[in-house]
Design a binder for these strands. Structure first.
Lengths: 125, 125
DNA sequence: AAGATATATTCCCATATAGCAATATGTATG
DNA sequence: CATACATATTGCTATATGGGAATATATCTT
């Protein structure tokens, strides 16, 4: 089985460095025409259009037509699944507050226990 | 130019859903033998070994030999670049008073208004 | 209408990669 | 030593994908 398509899995969509670069460019609250993005990256217009198409399909950008331009806008809220996923591991580099750490550990253990259909005993390290 | 290899870019390494699955399995503070991981996923041992190899090369897991086993341990601190990257977009779903939020609300209201006024069905309004 | 401009799409190629089957390597144990 | 076991590696196949070049499509301008 191949990995989930870039057009359906936001984790895969942002695995491409040029798409992260484009996301960064769009992150100023404005709408960007394709040509303006092209002017700031080192790849051609078709490649940029394709990257924007991928980002659109996973919802990370939206597009509106205005004249002969297509204006893309960042919808970074769609990145939240990535945030939520990686946040689960914060405790691995954040040791400041015990409460946060304990909460994260408990959440992880609860999830694993739930998904593994409890072997009916405890004994974690 | 292709995207950075799974073995050198942690963003690409975690773009594969089975690797995220393996990371979650390892996330209980213990060391896991390959066979124990194999028992929990739906792919064969060679595939698991390869996924663990990818994760090892990007530093997300470490491995020690013990007898005929190789024990893998999660080193989730290596996921921090992902956390730092996505954290810069937190304001898109946290910050209550920015333009994006307002836009989203407006869009939702427009949609609700549209749904509540189907053509030629709401006799009186 | 005829260019000019902006963007998307198609065609093609090169490369990465996920998985299985088979095999190799290393280790424990009789 | 011989054999079973655990894991890695190799060989292979199918597929996804990123990019350029060429082309299509839509819109603007004159």
């Amino acid at each position: 089985m191949a990995r989930a398509a870039t057009t359906t899995d936001v984790f895969n969509a942002i695995a491409e460095p040029r798409r992260r670069e484009i996301i960064r460019i769009l992150d100023d609250g404005n709408e960007w025409a394709v040509g303006d993005v092209v002017a700031r990256v080192n790849i051609g217009q078709p490649a940029v259009s394709k990257h924007l198409g991928v980002l659109r399909q996973v919802g990370v950008v939206t597009v509106v037509k205005r004249g002969q331009n297509r204006l893309y806008r960042l919808e970074a809220a769609q990145l939240r699944p990535i945030h939520d996923w990686v946040k689960t591991y914060e405790r691995y580099w954040n040791h400041q507050i015990d409460r946060i750490k304990e909460r994260a550990e408990k959440k992880a253990m609860d999830r694993i226990a739930r998904e593994n259909t409890p072997p009916a005993h405890n004994s974690k390290k």
